[in-house]
């Protein structure tokens, strides 16, 4: 990824795949669980995001399996994807740390003597 920030669905998809290869619906379920139900991906959105992430070299196909007559395609995080996720996680943590520090300073200023 470049200097631009990663969108939340992309970040959550990469995070879901950080635990190992997953098929389409497993990614959707992981993302929903991690976001506590806030981000509910639909299949079209998921595959559009996976296609874009694959074009950027962040994810790759990791084999296919037929279960109950349904094709399951697995996806995995690439080395580049791992690096991009690490950088984005660090950026988010630094932002969060800064926000918490500022809020703490502001609260200490307005606290009654």
């Amino acid at each position: 990824m470049g200097a631009t920030e990663m969108r939340e669905p992309s970040f959550l998809i990469l995070t879901a795949l950080a635990g190992g290869p997953l098929h389409g619906y497993a990614v959707i379920a992981e993302v929903a669980q991690m976001s506590q139900g806030r981000v509910r991906l639909r299949a079209g959105t998921l595959y559009a995001a996976l296609e874009r992430l694959a074009a950027e070299g962040l994810v790759a196909s990791s084999g296919e399996q037929v279960v109950d007559g349904r094709l399951r395609r697995y996806f995995r995080l690439t080395d580049e994807g791992e690096q991009a996720l690490t950088l984005e996680a660090r950026r988010l943590r630094e932002n969060a740390d800064r926000a918490v520090a500022r809020l703490r300073t502001a609260r200490s200023r307005v606290a009654p003597a």
Partner: peptide, 26 residues
């Protein structure tokens, strides 16, 4: 692959029909 995901999701949501959200999304 997308069809498999759509059917898995429909099962998980207990649906036997296409949802409006899926129509809009696809």
């Amino acid at each position: 692959a997308v069809l498999g995901t759509l059917l898995d999701q429909a099962d998980a949501e207990g649906r036997s029909a296409v949802s409006v959200a899926d129509v809009r999304d696809i």
